[in-house]
Design a protein around this nucleic acid. Structure first.
Length: 517
RNA sequence: GGGCGCGUAGCUCAAUGGCAGAGCAGCGGCCUUUUAAGCCGUUUGUUGGGAGUUCGAUCCUCCCCGCGCUCACCA
C-alpha cells in the first residue's frame, strides 16, 4: 500500500488529511470554482486601479501552495497556476480565528487550494488576494522538493532547487511542478511543433499517419526494435523511419505529405540519441534537394521567429543565427579544405583508407568508401559547423534512397543540415527509378553482411509502388528533439523529452533478472 | 558494451578510520503587511545495496544497482 512506504513527514500529511475530513472538509472535492487565472486576476486589479475604480475586484483563485508565511493573526501564502504565482493574505479579521487555525494546522506546501476574496495591494506593493474563504482542492501527501525563491535586485535566486538528474527524469512531474524553466522548455517544444505544422499546412502539405508497426523496416540505417503479433503469428518491427511509406503516397497522388511522429532505433543512448525520438518527414513532388534546402532553412528560421521572436539563438555559449540563407559546403570541397583529402582521387575504399592511414586518421577497417567519407565528415566537418550549414553531395553507397548526380554516379543529391555541430536534418532528391532502386537494395545486401542489423532488407512492395510511377520529388527528415534543443539552448535530448529513456529502476538490488548471465 | 566520476535527511550540501552535521522543509511556541519573513525550542538517517579488511567503516577493498561524463555504436 502507498502509505506503507510513508515517512514520518508523509504520515503527518496523511493525518492532516484525516483531520480535515473529521471537520467536514473534503480533501479531494469533485469540483473547483476558479474564476480567473492568477495572471488575469492581477491584470484585472491593475486595470481597475489605473481607472481609479472603487469597485472591489472579487475573484476565486486556485492553485498549488508554493510558499506559506504564518505571522500569528495573519498568514501570507503564494499559490501557483499555469500563469504564475499570486500572493494570498489571510487575516483573522476576514476569515476568523477558526479558519485561520485550520489553514495553519492542516495546509502544507504542495496542496492545491481554492481561495475567494478581493484583490488588494499590500504595503510592500504586491498585488494580493485578500482571502474571504478558502478550501482544499487536493491534499498533497508527498512533499515536493523544498525549493525557495529569493529576489535579489530583481533577480530570482533559487535555493535548494531540485537538480538531481535521476529524480528529475524519473519523476518528471515533480521536476515540472517545482522548476518553471522546465515547463518553459516544453512549452517551447509544443509551440515548435505547432509552428512547423502551420508552415507546412500553409504550403499545401497534407499531414498523414503511416504504420509504426511494420513487417519490413527501412528508410534509415539503424537497428530496429522487434515485436510480435500473437494472433497473426507475425514478427513486426517498430519503424526506424517513415520514408518508404510516405513516398508510396506520392505514387498515390498525394503530392505533398508530411508526418510528425516517433521513430525507434535500437541503439546507444547519448546526449543526442534516445531510443525513441520525434521526427518530421515531408516529401514534395516536383522538388529536388536544392528546393528542399531552401524550404528547410525557411522552415527552421520561421519556426524560431514564431516561437522565440528571433532567429538568433544561444547554444553552447555561441550565438547562432538561423537567418537564411545558411552556409553551403560541398563535401568534396569541404574535405579538401579541412582534411586535405580530395575524395575524387580515391574512387574506392582501399585507396581512400590508405590515404587516411597516411594522415593518421583513425577509422574502422573493412568499411565502405561511403562510411570512410562519413568518418572524415564527423572528424573534420561536423564540429566546425556551428552556424547553420548544409553539407551536400554525399557518397552513393551510404545513400540507397537518393538519386545520383548526373555527372558523377558515385555521388548523390543529398544534404544534411548542421547547427551547433549537430546534425538536425537529412534530405535528398529522392530516387524514383525502380530499376535503380532495386539495384541499390541489392548493393546494400552485398555491402552489409547478413547479420548486420542496419542492413536494409529489400522492400518488394516499395519497389512495386515505384514501378507504378513516382513523381520526381525531394524529401526531408528533421529531428524535432534536436531542433528543440537548439531553440531552448539545452545540450542534451533528455532535457527536451518529457520522459527520456532511463534504465529500469530496480527497487530490489542484488536480484538479477532470470535471463541475465 | 568499455573507461572515468558520483550516490550522505524530503531538497541543497558538509564531515571524519572513532557518538553523522548545517540551511531550507517538518514539528511545538511567539508574532496583524510578510515575501529565502523573523525569533525561541525541537525531530530527522539502512550514509544506494551486499560482502570483506578492521577493536571500530559513511570513509579502505571487492561485487551489485542507479545516475552523469566519455568512447564505441548510430548512412
Amino acid at each position: 500500500m502507498l502509505k506503507d512506504d510513508f515517512s514520518d513527514l508523509e504520515m503527518q500529511r496523511l493525518n492532516k488529511l484525516e483531520q480535515l475530513r473529521a471537520i467536514g472538509q473534503e480533501p479531494y472535492p469533485l469540483r473547483a470554482h476558479k474564476s480567473h487565472t492568477n495572471a488575469s486576476a492581477v491584470a484585472l486589479f491593475e486595470k481597475a486601479e489605473a481607472e481609479g475604480s472603487q469597485e472591489p475586484v472579487e475573484v476565486v483563485l486556485a492553485g498549488r501552495l508554493r510558499a506559506i508565511r504564518h505571522m500569528g493573526k495573519l498568514s501570507f501564502a503564494h499559490i501557483e497556476d499555469r500563469t504564475g504565482k499570486i500572493q494570498l493574505l489571510m487575516r483573522v479579521n476576514e476569515i476568523g480565528a477558526e479558519k485561520l487555525d485550520e489553514f495553519v494546522r492542516f495546509y502544507d506546501l504542495g496542496d492545491f487550494i481554492e481561495a475567494s476574496g478581493q484583490m488588494m495591494r499590500t504595503r510592500r506593493g504586491e498585488v494580493t488576494l485578500q482571502v474571504q474563504d478558502f478550501r482544499m482542492l487536493s491534499k498533497a501527501l508527498l512533499p515536493l522538493p523544498a525549493d525557495k525563491d529569493e529576489t535579489v535586485d530583481g533577480e530570482v535566486v533559487r535555493h535548494a532547487q531540485l537538480t538531481d538528474p535521476e529524480t528529475r527524469y524519473r519523476r518528471r512531474y515533480v521536476d515540472l511542478a517545482v522548476n518553471p524553466e522546465v515547463r518553459e522548455i516544453f512549452r517551447v517544444r509544443a509551440e515548435t511543433v505547432k509552428a512547423i505544422r502551420a508552415f507546412l499546412d500553409e504550403r499545401d502539405f497534407m499531414e498523414v499517419e503511416t504504420p509504426i508497426l511494420q513487417p519490413i523496416y527501412g528508410g534509415a540505417a539503424a537497428r530496429p526494435f522487434t515485436t510480435y503479433h500473437n494472433q497473426l503469428h507475425q514478427e513486426l518491427f517498430l519503424r526506424i523511419s517513415f520514408e518508404l511509406y510516405l513516398k508510396r503516397l506520392l505514387v498515390g497522388g498525394l503530392d505533398r505529405v508530411y508526418e510528425i511522429g516517433r521513430d525507434f532505433r535500437n541503439e546507444g543512448v547519448s546526449f543526442k540519441h534516445n531510443p525513441e525520438f520525434t521526427q518530421l518527414e515531408f516529401y514534395m513532388a516536383y522538388a529536388d534537394y536544392n528546393s528542399i534546402m531552401a524550404i528547410t532553412e525557411q522552415l527552421v528560421a520561421e519556426t524560431a521567429q514564431k516561437v522565440l521572436g528571433t532567429m538568433k539563438v544561444q547554444f553552447g555559449g555561441q550565438e547562432i543565427d538561423l537567418t537564411p540563407p545558411w552556409n553551403r559546403i560541398q563535401i568534396r570541397q569541404g574535405l579538401i579544405d579541412q582534411a586535405g583529402i580530395d575524395i575524387h582521387q580515391y574512387p574506392d575504399a582501399d585507396s581512400l583508407a590508405a590515404a587516411m592511414r597516411e594522415k593518421g586518421i583513425a577509422f574502422k577497417p573493412d568499411v565502405s568508401r561511403g562510411k570512410l567519407i562519413n568518418t572524415l565528415l564527423e572528424t573534420y566537418l561536423e564540429p566546425i559547423m556551428i552556424q547553420p550549414t548544409f553539407l551536400y553531395d554525399y557518397p552513393r553507397d551510404i545513400s540507397p534512397l537518393a538519386k545520383a548526380k548526373l555527372d558523377d554516379p558515385t555521388t548523390v543529391e543529398r544534404f544534411e543540415g548542421y547547427v551547433g555541430g549537430m546534425e538536425i536534418c537529412n534530405a535528398f532528391t529522392e530516387l524514383n527509378d525502380p530499376l535503380d532502386q532495386e539495384q541499390r537494395f541489392l548493393e546494400m545486401g552485398h555491402t552489409y553482411s547478413e547479420d548486420e542489423e542496419e542492413r536494409n532488407p529489400m522492400d518488394e512492395d516499395y519497389l512495386q509502388a515505384m514501378a507504378y510511377g513516382m513523381p520526381p520529388n525531394g524529401g526531408l527528415g528533421l529531428g524535432i528533439d534536436r531542433l528543440v534543443m537548439l531553440l531552448t539552448g539545452q545540450h542534451t535530448l533528455r532535457e527536451v523529452i518529457l520522459f527520456p529513456h532511463l534504465r529500469e529502476a530496480d527497487d530490489k538490488p542484488q536480484e538479477k533478472k532470470p535471463d541475465e548471465k
